[in-house]
Structure formats: structure tokens, C-alpha cells
Nucleic acid binder design. Structure first.
Length: 438
DNA sequence: ATCCAGGTTAAACAAC
DNA sequence: GTTGTTTAACCTGGAT
């Protein structure tokens, strides 16, 4: 689908239209024309023969996402639930190919410089995932161009038509936003925050490696200089995250890890260890405020006072002060029960009502519940004859668990039913049998 | 030459 | 129409 880059639409108002404006929307609706696939104006992408004329021909490539390779791009468009300012990405986006009638020639039509379509959630997440998977390969002292090309290719495989440069830029912009967000508007619960969280995880992973590496390396800034620079901000705003949640038991097996996956659609009260634990009254990104809970504006850094609840977990009972912020309460619970892993947890009161944690929560006795994780079976095959060797039981608590598992085995995903590749923990079926795919 | 950080510009949109 | 926000794309400069 080399020509998918040229998806674009000239509109009557004389400009290239990506289906964002109301004006174009109507066109889209009527003609099933939409899309947003970026016309890539990046100069360095040779795949981009660029700009077409106003009389280019439009061909409908897919209908409504029922088929077609480009489909993935159309997923998840409800995401602006989380991001109220993401004004684009309306619904299904049938793709179109714009065929330059003067096929191939480069008579640069000074197409007005348009920006490509805003990245949709899935797209951004894929990028982060791919970038993350290759993080160890990136090296400032060498060209990483080929790596970005690979990422771009992977993106295309997923139906996201993004050039290497676009990927690079997006990544940089994400890092910038991330950094900014850390200093200012930490946490409004938007989808972006999950990206940041993901990025933060990458940085934390790096920091782990660096910590190890520096034990061996004499110079703190050689191969790890890049990492160090990342860490400069990784350990400031997110401060606590790397400290509080980086700890894994020495046997490598997390005890109770609270850090949960980036997807917000998990348990309604899933609590994230990555959530900042600054106890300063600022709600963490993934902490879901319940209506009337106060939210951002309520109180700042209130000291712990006299409100205490009793929390029971197995044989252990602890009294927890709940005069602090939601984060502080979480942190306290985590400390009290030695929860160091990423597993989500929640509190259920005596009426079996799951309570959100805040300073106004009713006093009383609570039961602590910890996420059981998602258990699957992984069948290992003999490389030569492809016969099953043994089956392993595996439990994942977070997306990161899943990725680590894959990475350690050099797999890109797990496969089920002989053809379905699962690269996302959410798509795993409990109890199902999978095999690794390289 | 290429990397990255940090900044800027401007397209696209929303809200008024 | 104006204003404000978001963010893709671009620029610059220092480091490697």
C-alpha cells in the first residue's frame, strides 16, 4: 500500500482537507471520505512523492473498517473521552487513496503546508511500544535512522502510516510534553497521561539498567549519557515513581506490584504505583477521581490527622490514616502491606462496596483486594520439529509484565489459534494456550 | 553527520 | 470574527 501516504482530500474551500473541519466532515459523511492519513510533507521521506493537485482522483479504499489492513488505525476513536481537546478522529475513517493524475512526476505543487493528522491513541501507543521495545538499541553516538525506519515499518504493518521522521518527531514531542507535564499540569487523567506513564516506565527501565551499568562502568557518561539526560527529568517530577516502584524483590519475583497497565479501562479502582506519591494533594494521573471527590483543587498537603480506617488483607490488619490525599493513602496502604509490585488493589467496605480512596471516605473496616492478574499458558515448542515440549503457566499483572516476558524470550508477541498474534495484554484470554512468536 | 533538548511556528480546531 | 489550545513540523545549538 505504498500509496496510502497520499491519502488526502482536496476540498472545495481550496485546501487539503483531512476531514477535520465541519465542512469536510460533511463531505466525509456523505462520501465516506475521510481520512486523515497523513499526507506526509516531510522532506526526507522518499516514500512521499508528495502533493497532488486539486484534481487528483479519490478512491475509496475501505468501507467502514470491516476489512483492510489500514483498519487498525481506525480503532479507539472514543479516546477523546479522555482527551476533550482532541478534536479530530471522529469515527470510522475509511481510507482513501489519492491518485495523482500526473502520476509520479514531481512537479511540486506547492501544496499548502499542512500538518499531518493528529496521532490517535492507538497510534501513539504503538509508537511508544515499538520505541520501547528497541530502546536498548538506540545510541546517540550512532545513527538511529535505521531504527526509526524499522519503527515506521512496524507502524505501517499496524496500519499506521507514519514515516520515520514523523515517528521521531512524535517521540520527541512526547518527551517534551512529558517533561512539561511533569513540571506543571501533572495529572488530569487524560489519555496523554498514559503515554507519559509509558514513557516514564521506559525511563525507569533505563534507569535500572544504568544503575546496574554504572556499577561496572567507570565513566558515568559514556554509553549512558543519553540515559542520564533522560533521567534528569525522570527523577524529578516523577521522583517517587522510580524510587517507590522500582523496587522489586531480590528474587526477581514481584511481591505485590501495584503498578498497573497504562490502559485506563481496567478495574475502576485500579491503582497505579506509577501514580506519583507526592502527597501534595495533586491527584495522580491515573487515579480516577470520583465525582464530588474534590479533584484537583481540594486541599493541599494536609497533614495526617485522626481519620483512620482498618484494612484487612489475609491475616494482616493495619490501621490506615486517611487524612491525606488519595495518593498518600495509597502509599500508606502500599507501605503497610508491603505491596511492591504493580498489581492493582482496591478496598471493599463491609457492605462490599468498593470505595475510592480519599480523605472523605467513610471510616470503618475494609478488605484489601489485590489484582489476581491474568493467567495464561504458554506452550514451548521444539525449534527443529515444532513439537510441543512443555507448557508453562504464566500470570501477568500489567502490560509491562507482558512486554518484559516477551522481551526476555525474544518474542514479539504470543500467538493463539495458530494465527492470531497478541501483542497486547488486554487481548489475552485467561487460561488460553499461547505460543511465542519471534 | 547525527543525536537530542529546547524552543518556535503555524495548522486545525473549539469556544466565545 | 477573535482568542486560546493542542500539536505536527520545524529550527537552533551544543554534544558526540
Amino acid at each position: 500500500f505504498g500509496c496510502s501516504r497520499h491519502i488526502s482530500l482536496w476540498c472545495a474551500h481550496g485546501g487539503l482537507c483531512f476531514g477535520k473541519t465541519e465542512h469536510c466532515l460533511s463531505v466525509k459523511t456523505a462520501m465516506f471520505v475521510s481520512d486523515k492519513r497523513p499526507t506526509d510533507f516531510y522532506k526526507d521521506d522518499n516514500t512521499n512523492t508528495n502533493s497532488s493537485t486539486a484534481r487528483d482522483m479519490i478512491i475509496d479504499v475501505t468501507s467502514n473498517g470491516a476489512s483492510g489492513d489500514l483498519q487498525p488505525h481506525n480503532h479507539n476513536h472514543h479516546h477523546h473521552n479522555n482527551h476533550n481537546h482532541n478534536h479530530h478522529n471522529h469515527n470510522i475513517q475509511p481510507q482513501q487513496i489519492l491518485l495523482g493524475e500526473s502520476s509520479g512526476e514531481d512537479h511540486e505543487v506547492k501544496a499548502p503546508k499542512k500538518r499531518a493528522e493528529t496521532w490517535v491513541q492507538d497510534e501513539t501507543r504503538s509508537l511508544i511500544m515499538f520505541r520501547r521495545g528497541m530502546d536498548g538499541l538506540f545510541n546517540t553516538s550512532k545513527s538511529n535512522k535505521h531504527l526509526w525506519e524499522q519503527i515506521s515499518a512496524k507502524m505501517r504493518e499496524k496500519g499506521f502510516d507514519r514515516s520515520p521522521t514523523m515517528c521521531t518527531d512524535k517521540w520527541r514531542n512526547l518527551l517534551k510534553e512529558f517533561k512539561k507535564a511533569k513540571h506543571h499540569d501533572r495529572g488530569n487523567g487524560s489519555a496523554k497521561m498514559s503515554y507519559y506513564k509509558e514513557i516514564e516506565e521506559i525511563l525507569r527501565e533505563r534507569s535500572k539498567k544504568v544503575t546496574t551499568a554504572t556499577h561496572y562502568s567507570k565513566s558515568p557518561n559514556t554509553p549512558t549519557a543519553k540515559v542520564d539526560s533522560f533521567m534528569q527529568f525522570a527523577d524529578k517530577g516523577f521522583d517517587d515513581t522510580s524510587i517507590s516502584f522500582g523496587s522489586v524483590e531480590t528474587n526477581g519475583r514481584p511481591a505485590l506490584n501495584l503498578e498497573r497497565r497504562l490502559d485506563h479501562d481496567g478495574h475502576p479502582l485500579a491503582i497505579t504505583a506509577v501514580d506519583a506519591v507526592t502527597a501534595n494533594g495533586v491527584p495522580p494521573w491515573n487515579w480516577r477521581e470520583t465525582p464530588g471527590n474534590g479533584g484537583d483543587g481540594d486541599g493541599h498537603g494536609q497533614p495526617f490527622g485522626g481519620r483512620v480506617i482498618t484494612v484487612k488483607f489475609g491475616d494482616y490488619t493495619r490501621r490506615i490514616g486517611v487524612d491525606g490525599t488519595a495518593e498518600a493513602i495509597k502509599e500508606t496502604i502500599r507501605s503497610a502491606f508491603g505491596l511492591r509490585t504493580r498489581r492493582a488493589f482496591w478496598l471493599e467496605d463491609e457492605d462490599q462496596v468498593v470505595r475510592c480512596l480519599d480523605r472523605d471516605m467513610p471510616l470503618g473496616n475494609y478488605l484489601l483486594h489485590v489484582d489476581d492478574g491474568l493467567a495464561i499458558r504458554v506452550c514451548h515448542y521444539d525449534e527443529s520439529n515444532q513439537l510441543p515440549v512443555h507448557t508453562e503457566e504464566k500470570i501477568f499483572y500489567t502490560e509491562e509484565d507482558y512486554r518484559d516476558f516477551l522481551a526476555r524470550r525474544g518474542w514479539t508477541c504470543l500467538q493463539v489459534d495458530g494465527f492470531r498474534n497478541i501483542d497486547n495484554m488486554d487481548d489475552l484470554q485467561p487460561g488460553a494456550v499461547y505460543r511465542g512468536v519471534r
